[in-house]
Design a protein around this nucleic acid. Structure first.
Lengths: 184, 184
DNA sequence: GTTACTATACCGACCAGACGGTTTAGTAAC
DNA sequence: GTTACTAAACCGTCTGGTCGGTATAGTAAC
């Protein structure tokens, strides 16, 4: 039987456990079970739990960056980029929300593992500088999208579906307005 | 000696542990130690850990609501209310940030304990309805403040101090503009 | 004023289970 | 022989929770 270097499969399994069972059940045993691998096999590739978490964050941020770049396209103008960034923040799939929620608590006690996440956001906001639009107001708009996403992730969003839809429409309208306005 | 009904002192202790040691160290033992009480004494007042968490959330939300109402004052106009809400979101004390971060992970695995938090936010946004300003744009502004706060809480904020200051100024400027603009 | 009882508040030893991690012995493909 | 595992026992630690007991204060009959 061909072994496709089970590392990726193990990371997949860890994501499944994280989304379906939460951060408190993300144990070496449960990840190994989900990956249909022995605990020893798991620890062969990730010598500590921290190493596993680190690899998970790295892969997730790589994927997030790829997805963002996809959605932006190649030669997009300011309006398209702003809109893409707002839309990318507003994770629509339940799985992504749960994954994000899981990550937040899984990484709560090892702050320096969150550096890739911080740096991901840094590049997001840095990209606004090249855009000939009001950077601060644009950043506020992106922050609002992030805020809504985080509230939903943490399950404390107070909005009904209708209210949420209206908010998203408003954000997209504001994005268009910002892209057209002159730099202040 | 007057007995101050140790319950409040125990909740104080739990907050200290949460801010200073994080959610993973928020154990019955460490709370009892911090409160200078035996574990049995702690469990006498809070029969389960969940009950302790619930009491913590309840007290924190009560305090948060009080603080928000204080900052708003009595007969504030739309501009003052918007500004107060933005400023209240942007927790400036390190302790509040850590407390919030701790809560987030402490409550990660018991979602229904977060209902008081959701309801706190609900009332925040519902108050915008009485204000004769654009509700959606105002909500977007508040969300941006929440987004910045949550990023700082989760320790993934990509902004320098100068960038953050500029963002806050921009939010306050947007608040003033919104309060003056007619309802769309 | 002693005895009997109750309620409140608390102590601290103990327990069963889970967890991260180690170790050992073995397998099987290349 | 190296790489990539399996299987299972095991260790030390920590955790939430239980349980029997204790200290103090108050009540009230006698």
């Amino acid at each position: 039987m061909v072994r496709p270097s089970g590392k990726e499969a193990m990371l997949d399994a860890a994501e499944v456990v994280l989304t379906e069972q939460g951060a408190w059940r993300l144990t070496l045993d449960s990840v190994a079970e989900q990956a249909q691998v022995s605990k020893g096999g798991l620890l062969y590739h990730f010598p500590t739990k921290r190493a596993l978490l680190q690899a998970m964050v790295a892969r997730l941020m790589t994927h997030a960056t790829e997805r963002r770049n996809e959605r932006r396209g190649e030669d997009a103008d300011a309006a398209a980029i702003l809109r893409a960034d707002v839309e990318t923040s507003l994770l629509d799939e339940e799985r992504d929300l749960q994954l994000c929620a899981g990550l937040i608590s899984a990484l709560a006690n090892c702050p320096h593992l969150k550096e890739p996440i911080r740096s991901f956001h840094e590049s997001r906001f840095a990209d606004l500088e090249a855009l000939n639009i009001d950077q601060n107001e644009s950043a506020v708009l992106l922050l609002a999208a992030d805020g809504l996403m985080l509230m939903e992730t943490l399950n404390v969003s107070p909005f009904t579906k209708e209210q949420r839809d209206a908010l998203v429409q408003t954000m997209l309208r504001m994005a268009a307005r910002l892209a057209e306005a002159p730099v202040s």
